[in-house]
Nucleic acid binder design. Sequence first.
DNA 1: ATGGCTACGATCCGTAGA
Length: 254
Amino acid sequence: MRLATWNVNSLKVRLPHLTDWLKSAQPDVVCLQEIKLEDAKFPRAELTAAGYGAVFSGQKTYNGVAILARTPLEDVQVGIPGFVHEHKRVIAATIDGMRVVCLYAPNGQAVGSDKFEYKLQWYAALRGWLKDELVRHPNLAVLGDMNVAPEDRDVHDPKAWEGQIHVSEPERAAFRSLLDVGLADSFRLFEQAEKAFSWWDYRMMAFRRNAGLRIDFVLLSQSLVTRCTSCNIDKAPRKLERPSDHTPVVVELS
DNA sequence: ATGGCTACGATCCGTAGA
C-alpha cells in the first residue's frame, strides 16, 4: 500500500500535475493540502476518471484539504473536535481499516505574532486529539504539511533560520509532542541523503540551490511502522513548469 | 539590500504563504 502527501498550492492550477503524478506514481491514498477551492468547485469528475474517490474540506482562496483513495473512504471527520475550524485544515477518513489524517498546519507568519500563537494552540489541540485517535485506531497514519522543520538537518541553512518561523523551539516542541503520543516520522526510519527537503521558496532560485526545508511528513503509529518499507520525497513534480512549491512525500506499507 | 515568486480576488495592488 502506497500513501502520499502533497501540498499542491491550488488544486485548480495543479490539477494537470496531480493527474499526471497519480498515473506515474500510482499511490493508493493521497492527502492534499492548500487546495484553495470551495467544495462546489472540487474536481471530483477528473479524479473519478483517474480512479480515485475523494473527501474534502475546502474554502475560497486559502487552506483546504482532501483525501484521495482508490478504495472507499469511510467515517469522514472534518476539523479537530472541540477546536473552532474556520480554517479548513483537517480531514480524516478510514480506508481499508487504516485511519488516515490529512493536515495543513498554520504557517505562523512570524515568531511572537498572533498567527504564531494560533499555530501553537492548533498544535496543542491536535496533539490531544491524535492521542485519543491512537487509542481508537492502532493503524493511524498522519500526513501533511506540518509547517515545522523539526531538526537542523531539515533546514538548508540552520544558522540563517535559527529562531525563525518554522524552526523556533516552541514550534519544534509542538512537533515533537506529536511523536511523544506515539507517532514516528517515517522519513527518519530509513537512511536518507543529506539535505533532503520537501519545500523550496519560489524566489531566489531556491530549488536550483536546494535551499529548502523539510516540512511535509508521513507520521505512523507503531503498528504501521512495522509495515513501513520506505519513505521518499519525489522531487520530479517540482521540476515541472508552474510547480507547487512543495513536493510529494511517499510511503510504502507492506 | 528583508527584496526576490506565486495564487487569489480584487483591480492594475494587497494579502498570504514559508
